[in-house]
Design a protein around this nucleic acid. Structure first.
Ligand SMILES: [Zn+2]
Ligand SMILES: [Zn+2]
Ligand SMILES: [Zn+2]
Ligand SMILES: [Zn+2]
Lengths: 142, 142
DNA sequence: ATACGACCTCCAGCTACTGTAGGTTCAAGA
DNA sequence: TCTTGAACCTACAGTAGCTGGAGGTCGTAT
């Protein structure tokens, strides 16, 4: 039986995060000691490891919830799990594309500025006027 | 003089977002009509366009606050602005690197799964066991 | 005069945690 | 057995950057 602190260490998770996952129903309520402290077994360790690994791969908690559910039902078709992963892959690819466009613009503005007063700063000029840009970057965030 | 709705349309911003920017002090409090509605001039339009463009390039509101301040003082050295942009570029490059590693793993798990029951799903297997991965992916989020 | 859209303030909610306050439990050492 | 101190508990607030809603007011066209 593991305490929450030990489980946290073993999975590289913060204690509060484990309690948070329990609160939102991603992890089941564990057993308790006579004094009311949480005690975990191997099943919970596996489950939390799964969650953390999926998070490291960028899956949202909602996606992870579905993946856990699928993992709990070995007889179901895995088509849904595969779809979630493909969706995630697509999202990652879109983000990469967007970030690469940003990278291009940022590189350009940094390289073109030769210092001096902010009145002539290339960085600020580009920020003031999108027509100085080579790429579009409609969406915000990320 | 522009209403908030017109300003929103001209800059591709939601009305609430403009009020939010004002609330956090990123945009100055504008003048008001006799009835208390916000009225904007060209200076505000420029300022908001700057903010939005910087957001599209991925700068944080905190960074934008500094950039605006530098832009307001044309005699200052632009070294700081350049530093902010370089920092942003670095961050973007790090994110790209991380996402490319994720992309590799996700592609692999998607391609290796040949369907069937979730019990044998390659996607779920990899999520259960990081040793199936080729890359490290310590950090979470993004 | 009235209708209707655009505006107003205030507040809650989103993701995925993280931190803090104030109190209790556990386990080891004296 | 008693004491100490780390680890635990609950509950709540805060982070970034918005977004949406409720309930009410303003502006303008007819
Ligand atoms: Zn410069
Ligand atoms: Zn641009
Ligand atoms: Zn599969
Ligand atoms: Zn892995």
């Amino acid at each position: 039986m593991l305490t929450i602190g030990t489980l946290a260490k073993k999975t590289g998770t913060k204690v509060q995060t484990i309690r948070y996952y329990e609160q939102i129903g991603l992890l089941p309520e564990p057993g308790r000691s006579s004094g009311g402290q949480r005690r975990y077994g191997d099943a919970e360790l596996d489950r939390l490891s799964f969650v953390r690994h999926a998070r490291q791969l960028g899956f949202s908690l909602e996606a992870i919830r579905e993946l856990l559910d699928l993992s709990d039902h070995p007889d179901k078709s895995c088509a849904e799990a595969d779809a979630i992963a493909r969706r995630q892959l697509k999202q990652v690819e879109q983000r990469i594309a967007r970030l690469e466009a940003l990278q291009t613009e940022l590189k350009r503005m940094v390289h073109e500025c030769s210092g001096g007063h902010t009145a002539d700063c290339r960085v600020l000029e580009v920020l003031r006027d999108h027509s100085e840009c080579l790429t579009n970057h409609e969406e915000i965030g990320g």
